[in-house]
Design a protein around this nucleic acid. Structure first.
Lengths: 185, 185
DNA sequence: TCCGGAATGTAGCGGTCGCTACATTCGTGG
DNA sequence: CCACGAATGTAGCGACCGCTACATTCCGGA
């Protein structure tokens, strides 16, 4: 009976939901277990330790976001940088995507301070974002495509930061002006 | 004898240095006290509680950064947005300023998750950054100046984020391309 | 049917957290 | 010189932390 494997999956999904709803603030083992409707003892039976549980949940979150991004802007079609910037900014500020961005900010900050599971996760997810952008950029020169993908990701993440520090309306005004940006060749 | 007031100042400065060096990771009362070369008992004698100590230290840090920014680009001279973006990106990546940016990322993330002293601090410092940019932007239309200041701050912060997630060289490549950006009117 | 391993519960360990009650020392104004 | 408040030390409280030893229950295969 693979009760453990099944429960592991169920708990992973619930943890992902909890992370999206509450961020990284309520992530003690006991709090995670409560969110997953499971005893703390069992949480650490399904997963080796807290880091593994959080890691699995984050992978699940990233996969969810990946699906949404794919749906919003399928691979294969390539846009000029100005339009892709506008699209990316639009997607990132969608109501359904905002919990992902908020969680993403926290993960990056945790990675910046070198917290154990997050540094690896942050690198992985950043790489995913960058390649998502890069494969949709209609730029021939590989090096330039590479660099501008980074710039677009920086802009989108920066707008999310601005929203935290200066409020949604100011961030929206700045995002508006992002449409006036041109990338000279 | 105002031993307490004097010590409060000394400890504040040491705490500011500790925050710049170690970020928000080692901020338990006992760790802060050790960094300030003071017993934990005395730290909570000089300050009402941990939040007050951290708040004072952050104010000190912000003042330090303000001085550096003022020195790097004095008020009074106004630049077109393209040049100000380039200047801001250059300053933010200076070796001496990078600890400030790293700490700043952590504060914003803490603010995003609603942690007690940080939410207020983040709003205050963001407002300071924005007005610093705005008073140096050579744009007549106030509304446009307001919005583009936000966009520039978002870009600079975003580059700092990119550095965390994708490494310094990739962030530098993106910053390089930021010089090609034009703001169409 | 009963045996063995999977699944689950109970209890608690050693540690850190923020903070404080209480005792003691110190330095200065009367 | 001494009384009194400022300054400092000692010790520990109660809460939470991640994690685990141990006991018990459950259930399918022999």
């Amino acid at each position: 009976m693979a009760v453990r494997a099944v429960q592991r999956q169920v708990v992973t999904e619930r943890l992902a939901g909890h992370l999206l709803a509450s961020g990284l603030s309520r992530t003690s083992v006991r709090q995670l277990a409560a969110a997953a409707q499971v005893s703390d003892r069992m949480l650490l039976y399904y997963f080796r330790d807290k880091a593994e549980a959080l890691g699995e949940a984050m992978v699940h979150v990233a996969a969810q976001l990946g699906g949404r991004l794919e749906a919003a802007l399928p691979a294969g079609q390539r846009l000029p940088p100005e339009r892709l910037l506008a699209e990316a900014a639009r997607i990132a500020t969608e109501l359904e995507v905002r919990p992902f961005m908020a969680l993403w900010m926290e993960v990056i900050a945790a990675a910046a301070r070198g917290e154990a599971p997050y540094a690896g996760i942050a690198g992985q997810v950043t790489a995913g974002f960058l390649s998502w952008i890069e494969t949709r950029l209609d730029i021939e020169d590989a090096e330039r495509r590479h660099a501008i993908a980074g710039l677009i990701l920086a802009a989108v993440d920066g707008l999310a930061l601005l929203e935290i520090g200066a409020g949604a309306e100011r961030a929206a005004a700045a995002a508006e002006r992002a449409q006036d940006v041109r990338f000279t060749p």
